[in-house]
Design a binder for these strands. Structure first.
Length: 257
DNA sequence: AAAATGATCAACCGCGTATGC
DNA sequence: GGCATACGCGGTTGATCATTT
């Protein structure tokens, strides 16, 4: 018996997500969390399957995601973890807070593989690949080179872990999105110069441009309007609404209501 | 300036696994 | 134990942008 499709695909939308769809999904999860991905699209008013919603949330919309290229230290940590774990991207991602398995997988295939090959290392086995190079260097030296690389990577891994405080934080697999309630959400600002984490349990949104230009996680056409009189964001179509309550370390705090 | 090629990454697909009945 | 269902994972695709010819 064939496997049932994850959802009724008739009439469901595929392809790139629009800003409106994004905002609907964000608002739904911010206000309700997700107890069942299959139910999310229906309840959020989206013509998508639950799987697509989950992927969009975990890989792009989740507020704790870092954006941008992996740093050199992160790259080396990925290499080290890949040598131990293989293509278990979600496991690897769990060691890099704010990074997704998809992001790491893409980065591996587009950047890291090439780098390793340039270094004469097989990205699959993490061992030297070039027979010519093997002839040029005695085995001991090769081993030393690998040991050096490993040692350097381990050192960098420590730096990354220290930097990200991995040891003390309960890392979770990127697809294992924890149930979060709105009051638990913090939203790192996409503008790097803007925010620093305050540890507040309140929802925080970027301060520099928003609300004037509706700069919310890059959603320039956030579907709603800012009420400058009451300092509130009034959403449309039943979207969640929030109110600016205070300024903390250059980040406005918001409370959903 | 236009076409060809390459690089990047968001999104999809299908399979494996966990869970509940 | 067997089946149905939902979720998670990894491989792959394809659209878009950048670079080269």
């Amino acid at each position: 018996m064939g496997r049932q499709p994850c959802c009724d695909k008739v009439g469901l939308k595929k392809g790139p997500w629009t800003a409106v769809e994004d905002s609907r999904l964000i608002n739904f999860i911010l206000t309700n969390g997700h107890y069942c991905w299959r139910a999310v699209p229906k309840l959020a008013g989206l013509l998508r399957c639950g799987k697509s919603c989950r992927l969009r949330w975990t890989n792009y919309l989740r507020p704790d995601l870092k954006r941008g290229l992996l740093s050199e230290a992160e790259e080396k940590l990925v290499i080290e973890l890949h040598s131990q774990l293989g293509n278990r991207w979600s496991k690897i991602a769990s060691h890099l807070p704010g990074r997704t398995d998809n992001e790491i997988k893409n980065h591996w295939n587009t950047h890291i593989k090439k780098k390793l090959r340039k270094m004469g290392i097989d990205p699959l086995t993490h061992k030297p690949i070039l027979p010519a190079a093997a002839e040029e260097q005695p085995p001991q030296q090769q081993g030393d080179r690998m040991a050096d690389t490993s040692a350097k990577i381990s050192s960098d891994q420590e730096q990354v872990e220290e930097k990200n405080n991995v040891a003390s934080s309960p890392g979770f697999s990127t697809d294992e999105v924890p149930m979060m309630l709105p009051h638990e959400m913090t939203v790192p600002c996409p503008l790097s110069s803007c925010c620093s984490s305050s540890g507040s349990s309140e929802m925080q949104l970027p301060c520099t441009e928003w609300p004037e230009s509706m700069c919310l996680w890059g959603l320039d056409d956030w579907n709603g309007a800012w009420d400058s009189v009451d300092d509130k964001f009034l959403g449309l179509d039943g979207f969640a609404q929030c109110q600016r309550t205070s300024l903390d370390q250059e980040c406005w705090k918001f409370e959903l209501f």
